[in-house]
């Protein structure tokens, strides 16, 4: 398991340069405009993309069948990708908090943590939605479905935000904030179990 994660991290290091440039660009933009939202969104997208990118690398190298000839179970492979996603979401969470504190537009630490948490949570939920698809069809074939999922989700959000009569009350928002960590965990867990089950039957 640890070996699999190390492999993914080393493998993704090659992208580090591009990601670094992206982060610096959006960070500078954020300082300039005193607005951290773009930076936060970009970071969240990056976090969600990392496990998918690593799966694309594996697919290209046909790593999975080789890995499974080692003392590694199919469950380990699935768990490895989820852990990778969680790891990146956690890093993004911390970076977003730090960045917001530096840019500081007068929000309280609690507000900042809530916003950063929501972004990482979104990244995790997106990962939870696409992972079973990718484990079933592979990244190459699953790409289209992944895009559809992304557009579908965006569409839903736009639909609800334009059609709702009024903004939700502060009370509802508070409740949502309290409940969402457990919802994210439940979604992740369900997704993991589903992916494990799918991957158990995959012919390599």
């Amino acid at each position: 398991m640890k070996g699999l994660l190390i492999k993914d991290l080393i493998n993704l290091k090659k992208q580090g340069m591009i990601i670094g440039v992206l982060i610096v660009f959006y960070a500078v933009l954020g300082f300039w405009t005193h607005d951290s939202s773009m930076m936060g969104a970009v970071m969240a997208v990056l976090a969600a993309m990392m496990p998918i990118t690593s799966m694309a690398y594996d697919e290209k190298a046909k790593w999975d069948k080789y890995a499974l000839s080692m003392p590694v179970s199919r469950r380990d492979i699935v768990l490895g990708k989820y852990l990778l996603g969680i790891l990146f979401s956690a890093v993004v969470f911390i970076v977003n908090i730090a960045f917001n504190l530096i840019v500081n537009n007068g929000e309280s630490l609690k507000e900042i943590a809530l916003l950063s948490g929501a972004l990482s949570g979104l990244a995790l939920v997106y990962m939870a939605l696409v992972m079973p698809v990718l484990f079933r069809f592979g990244v190459e074939k699953g790409r289209l479905l992944m895009m559809m999922l992304l557009f579908g989700a965006t569409g839903l959000i736009v639909y609800f935000s334009t059609n709702s009569e009024s903004l939700p009350s502060a009370q509802t928002l508070n409740l949502a904030a309290k409940l969402s960590p457990s919802i994210v965990i439940a979604v992740l867990l369900t997704s993991f179990l589903l992916s494990s089950k799918i991957y158990e039957k995959r012919e390599l």
Binding site: G3, K7, K14, A61, M70
Partner: peptide
């Protein structure tokens, strides 16, 4: 078990040192 498959299945970005580090944590 030691396995050699009919095609190379290594991620291309790795060198020998990386592979040693990975295998140390697998076997």
């Amino acid at each position: 078990i030691g396995v050699v498959l009919d095609e190379s299945c290594f991620p291309e970005n790795l060198n020998l040192w990386d592979i040693n580090r990975i295998m140390k944590n697998i076997y």
